[in-house]
Every structure is written in structure tokens, then in C-alpha cells.
Simulated assay, not measured.
Amino acid sequence: FYSELLHIIGLVETKVGGKRLIERNSEGQRHSGTILEDTIIHLDSLDKISRLSKAFIYGETHEERLFNVALGLNITWINRILFLKLLEAQLITYHKGDKSYAFLNLNRIREYDDLNRLFFQVLAVKHEIRNDDVKKLFEKVPYLNSSLFEPTEIEHQTLFISNLKDEKTIPALSNTVLKDEQGKKRTGSLSTLAYLFEFLNAYDFSSEGSEAIQEENKTLINASVLGLIFEKINGYKDGSFFTPGMITMYMCRETLRKTVVQKFNDLKGWSCVEFDELYNKIEDKKEANEIVNSIKICDPAVGSGHFLVSALNELIAIKSDLKILQDKDGKLLKFYDVEVENDEMIVTDEEGHLFEYNPK
């Protein structure tokens, strides 16, 4: 997944001094249809770099500045698209496989202009105040109150994704995941946007936590995998490392359970040593919830937010183990068990069946 995504962007991963970094393809391997190369062409032809107020922060030479500004833009755009692919998959899952909730495809997004409208006229705008031309096309796409779908300062100063050329093509990767009608690997070239959507659709973003057999036998891409990809791409400058899920899960479990014990001891005057001792001492479940909720967690080196998600999962599992897990109205969720396995939160009912979300 990672290698082909880099191919579509126009990047390659290299190893320098023990660190893995991503770089622009060498001159003989570049394709003007890749997202990066098309961005660089527009930045250069429109003389955007010289107009930046602090161009020097993007590199010493004009070429370095072109690459770094283009890559920064590409990272923003790809982050949005990957997030939306997860959202799309969850919408379809929550609505019992209803494909009408799919929106990242050429039927709805035929060109980069449409993608730009999705970012800023749909996701960043409440349903009731959306423009008429996008209301029907994206009627089932929810409003997201997120800064991810607000134009960045560098976009305002340089380019939006709508500036890219729709008709450009790139060749399929030699070991592409795409298949032709005969089930063989795709060859030849296709438009960049079509390639990106077909590539994403070749993977399963929706089966997280499910034991169901996948009919199309697609490779699963879950939030943890995307977290790794986000941080590998976003950390291109200094070779930042992604913390594997098993490590974040272990660290969160060990530290948070000890913290919870200490918190109860401090506030209640108890002398518990082990986490399991808390269960028999808790009498007021509402107060116990407030004590756990009072714990503050800060990740000063936050990247994709993976560590914080692991921490949130563990806090919910802690409440479940203490039998104090409540819904937003204060009703005890006593018929459900929550545990964290392989850095994923697993919710089961009293009969051991996996929880399934049923939209109203």
C-alpha cells in the first residue's frame, strides 16, 4: 500500500544513514502526471515560490523550495483523502453495506475541482447552508467540524488541489494491486485521479474489528496502518519513527492502570497496590467515572494521534473492567465488555458476540 501510494504521489523511499526517508523520484523516473510533479510544475510556472514571504524556510535553493512546498501541499491533500476513505468505509459499514454512501469515486468526483469542493464546500459546511450544486451530489456526506478541511496558509499562498491538471496520466506500478478484467495486473497508464480512487478501492478500509469473511478478499487497511503511513510521510524531514501499536498498547496499559490506582488512592485515601483491588472498593460509580475522567494525557510529540487513541481505548477498557462504564446519560453499560487486543478496542455483549453499530 505504502509503496504504491508513494508512486502515485511521485515519491520514493530511500535509506540514508540508517534512516528511511522519502524523496522525489530521480529525473529519469519522474512522471509529470504524479501529484508531486504536477504541483511542482504549477508552483514554478506561476512563480509562487518567489512570492512567499519566508521562502527561505523551505530550503536554500529554488529546487529545494519547490520540492518542500509541493510536498507540504501533497501531504495535506493526501492526509485529507486517506481520512475520507476511512470515513467513507465506516459510513457504508454503519449503513449495512449501502454503497450509496460511497463518495470517493469518479461518479461523484470527476476532476480535481470536485475534490476541492468536497474539501471546502461540503465537509467544512453544515448541510443546511451548503451550495445547491453540491447538496445533491454529496447529500450523504456529513459535516465535519475539523481544521483538516479548512484551507491552510500555504494553500492560500500557493495552490489548491483544484489547480492540478485532470487529463494527466501516470503508468501503473509494476507490482500494482490493480487488476484488469481478466484478473491480471494492470498495465499501461491511467489518469492520476482514477488511479488514486481505484487504488484505494482495492483495499478494505471497513472490516476493522469484524470477523466476517471478506467477499472480495481485499487487504485490510485500518486506522493503525494509516497512522503508520501518516507519520512515515509527515516525518520525511527527520526520519521520524512510528511507534508500533503493540508498544503504544503496552505503554498505555501499564502507565494508565498505575495512574488510575494512584488517583483513587490520593482522592479516596485508599492504599491499593494492584489495579484489581479497586473493583471491590468502588461504591459510587458516578464518582468513580469522574475520577477516571479527571486524568489528563498529553502527547507532546503527537503525529497522527495514534498514541492518544491507544490511551483513549485503554481508559474505556479500564472503566469496563471496573464496571463503571456509562453512556452519555449516565446509564451503566453493564451488558458490554470492552478490552484492547492488538491495539484495537473490542466490544462484546454478554453472550460474547462482537458489538455491531446499528444506525437509527
Rank of each mutant, 00 (worst) to 15 (best):
Y2W: 02
E4M: 00
L6D: 08
L6C: 09
L11H: 01
T14I: 07
V16P: 09
V16K: 08
G17A: 07
K19W: 06
E27Y: 11
E27V: 08
Q29Y: 14
H31C: 07
D38Q: 05
L43N: 06
D47F: 12
I49W: 10
L52P: 10
L52F: 06
F56R: 11
H62P: 09
L66G: 14
F67V: 01
N68Q: 04
T76C: 07
T76S: 04
I78P: 03
Q90V: 13
Y101G: 13
R117Q: 14
L118Y: 01
F120I: 05
K126V: 14
K135P: 15
L137K: 14
V141F: 11
L144C: 08
P151M: 09
E155M: 06
H156C: 11
S162L: 02
N163F: 13
E167L: 04
L178H: 12
K185A: 06
T187N: 02
G188P: 03
G188V: 08
L190H: 13
S191W: 06
L193T: 02
Y195K: 04
E198S: 13
F199H: 08
D204K: 15
S206E: 03
S206K: 13
I213K: 09
E215D: 14
E215T: 01
N217D: 15
L220D: 14
I221F: 00
N222W: 01
L226H: 00
K232L: 08
N234H: 04
Y236V: 04
G245Q: 10
M251N: 10
V260K: 09
L267Y: 07
C272Y: 01
V273G: 15
D276N: 14
N280D: 15
K286T: 10
K286N: 13
A288W: 04
A288P: 04
N289W: 06
E290A: 11
E290Y: 05
N293L: 01
F307M: 00
V309H: 05
A317F: 05
I318S: 04
K319H: 05
L325N: 08
Q326M: 14
Q326F: 13
D327V: 09
G330E: 00
F335S: 14
V338L: 00
V338W: 00
E339A: 11
E341F: 01
N342P: 02
D343W: 00
I346E: 00
V347Y: 01
T348P: 07
E350H: 12
H353E: 10
L354F: 10
Y357D: 05
N358F: 14
K360A: 12
